[in-house]
Design a protein around this nucleic acid. Sequence first.
DNA 1: TGTACATTGTTATTTATTTCACACTACCTG
DNA 2: CAGGTAGTGTGAAATAAATAACAATGTACA
Lengths: 207, 207
Amino acid sequence: MNKLPEKTIGRLSEYRRTLLNCLAKGKTHIYSHELANLHNFTAVQVRRDIMLIGYSTTLKKGYDVKALIDVISKIIDTDEGINAAIIGVGNLGKAITTYFNGKRPKLRIVATFDNDPEKANRVIAGVKCYPISEINKLVNELDIRIGIMTVPPENAVSVLETLVNAGIKGILNYTSTPLSVPQNVHLEEYDMITSIEKVAYFVKQKK
Amino acid sequence: MNKLPEKTIGRLSEYRRTLLNCLAKGKTHIYSHELANLHNFTAVQVRRDIMLIGYSTTLKKGYDVKALIDVISKIIDTDEGINAAIIGVGNLGKAITTYFNGKRPKLRIVATFDNDPEKANRVIAGVKCYPISEINKLVNELDIRIGIMTVPPENAVSVLETLVNAGIKGILNYTSTPLSVPQNVHLEEYDMITSIEKVAYFVKQKK
DNA sequence: TGTACATTGTTATTTATTTCACACTACCTG
DNA sequence: CAGGTAGTGTGAAATAAATAACAATGTACA
Ligand SMILES: NC(=O)c1ccc[n+]([C@@H]2O[C@H](COP(=O)([O-])OP(=O)(O)OC[C@H]3O[C@@H](n4cnc5c(N)ncnc54)[C@H](O)[C@@H]3O)[C@@H](O)[C@H]2O)c1
Ligand SMILES: NC(=O)c1ccc[n+]([C@@H]2O[C@H](COP(=O)([O-])OP(=O)(O)OC[C@H]3O[C@@H](n4cnc5c(N)ncnc54)[C@H](O)[C@@H]3O)[C@@H](O)[C@H]2O)c1
């Protein structure tokens, strides 16, 4: 199971989301081409990904939805679950906190942090906001492993340092400041403007 | 300039953002390794990307920041600019509208749409909200080319159809429903849960 | 029951992207 | 103004990812 391609990891997450929907609708089996059509993928790609994670079916009635969810979950989740925190409770931080809660049983937002004293101790969607100064203590107490950064771009670098020092090993950066991290920390960056600009570029090509 | 790798397009957008910052700080020249270090890229990759877009410098004092911005802008922007709209003025839609406005001169959010009558005619960050029923008319009137979807997942498919019918050729989907579009429409998808799950996966590997 | 067919699993091939390696040259330094 | 250095530009090699091709096999149905 070692060395899954990074792209595959992303797709696994998406497959699972779709499979959970199927399950909710009472669908018990799904063909590779069905799963492919529900996304923008090809059936071969789906089969290949599924091969890579070591699941296979003897049936020719498609994959067992429940079983496939379980295999994917074994790869993505941990038994105990993983705790995350939002840093910067502004528009975006609030939106994510509200949206996220309860979506995934093994992935929880357990705290938010802000440096604005006004915001400390507020509760959003059941999640409490703490002063950023308490982060070291809370990372230990609540076993926070992932930091989701939604602070203003000019504070991104210093907040990153705070997070790394606090021992956080996974960072998702929504700030428009690109960051770099030590080897032992995993960083995922996402910049919305880049996404829009990519769309703009391709729209331009189509004219 | 045909056939730039897709990955390169994304990086160009990020280079430009950084270059604009440099320019604002009065920096006139930048080395490939400087630009690389400001992101998580290598100097070779930066040079390769810059080679692909046809810019080069005779100097050994690095690239001319201003000139490089111009070349990148020629690729990403159009002279007249491109107009975009937000569909679904909820938490996320509001956050993006507020955040985005004025960030890029050639990329404007000119309208938002919602099906909630309460929200119609409200103004957020200077952008007016229209009933979704008026979208066909407004796509023409305002020359909207890009639709940013932030509606609830269960309405994603029908909203997509509305957008495509209205003649929109570029779609950015923040909905957690995966979509597929006709050949002549460009679709970019981004699911936050997938990003967090990717981070979770890599954090797990590091334990 | 056996034949046609649909579907999976997997190896081989192709395509896309990154990295390496190095030629080339402007610039600095003495 | 020669020689060393630090930078760029780029063909070639390596790596990563997607696609094609097809053997194997369970299933439906005549
Ligand atoms: N809003 C969006 O849709 C959007 C989209 C793309 C990117 N972003 C990026 O996300 C970030 C936040 O955007 P926003 O619109 O939510 O901004 P915002 O100003 O609404 O929120 C920022 C929050 O961070 C807090 N903060 C500031 N410094 C802090 C620190 N050192 N420690 C802890 N908290 C701190 C502020 O008090 C505020 O609550 C920005 O970097 C922006 O570039 C936002
Ligand atoms: N909030 C987040 O941070 C976040 C993160 C990731 C993904 N998302 C996704 O973004 C989408 C929106 O999230 P949100 O938190 O802003 O939800 P929300 O419920 O706050 O907002 C949805 C908005 O869409 C409007 N709407 C509903 N049907 C519509 C239609 N047919 N046409 C036009 N407008 C319509 C609603 O009136 C509402 O204003 C969801 O699909 C969610 O999965 C949100």
